[in-house]
Design a binder for these strands. Sequence first.
DNA 1: CTCATGGTTCGAATATAGTTGAACTATCGG
DNA 2: CCGATAGTTCAACTATATTCGAACCATGAG
Lengths: 109, 109
Amino acid sequence: MSEIKSDTGPNLPHPADDEIQLAKVLFALSDPGRLELVRQLQEAPLEAARCHLTDPEIPKSTKSHQMKVLREAGVIRNEPHGRGRLLSLRREALERRFPGLLEAVLGAL
Amino acid sequence: MSEIKSDTGPNLPHPADDEIQLAKVLFALSDPGRLELVRQLQEAPLEAARCHLTDPEIPKSTKSHQMKVLREAGVIRNEPHGRGRLLSLRREALERRFPGLLEAVLGAL
DNA sequence: CTCATGGTTCGAATATAGTTGAACTATCGG
DNA sequence: CCGATAGTTCAACTATATTCGAACCATGAG
């Protein structure tokens, strides 16, 4: 056991709060599959392996790609967690940057 | 002069209020150029010829295409007006369908 | 009617995005 | 250490979007 944060580990790059761009966020959310994933993170962070229940046939590489688009847009965080990954919504960052946006998107039918 | 609405005229198709889809709206707004156009319609409707798309060098066919994407998504209305077209934001429809969304997007820096 | 203005549409080229298998990496349990 | 699990990355392919010239169409002015 070690408390040292492994630099060599699978720590993926995330944009800083103030680097999050509106256009990229809107684009990331403009896909039904990605939007669905975001909805699943509404209540609480989720292990990647536990979401996307709707389509169990999707290859993991495809799923990984969708997570990447959301992560690079600054919509979700993707961190190591046990032998998998923990996905979470970047609520605070998005709210600070684009107040009301996430709520409006998630609130829609 | 005639009060008859010409059916043969350039009346373009618009989605009905309840046919407006979130994903398409978000996609339409995810382009900086289109977003800029939408911002110009914030205050009041505008003749298409009067809204300069940041780049004055943009060919009219390209500009027409951008208007089409926004129109088909249900973001703007595009109606005949004199020898040109009048563009307007579909505020009410968007507000009814996705409350707060437009405000959040336009309010962003 | 004719012309200039302001736009739409079409088609072809280009650019960007999505999909997927295979190879690779990290972690945990035994 | 080994195998299983979970996910990323890469490369090739397919699909969708964007761009823009050229042709076309409607309106208003003269």
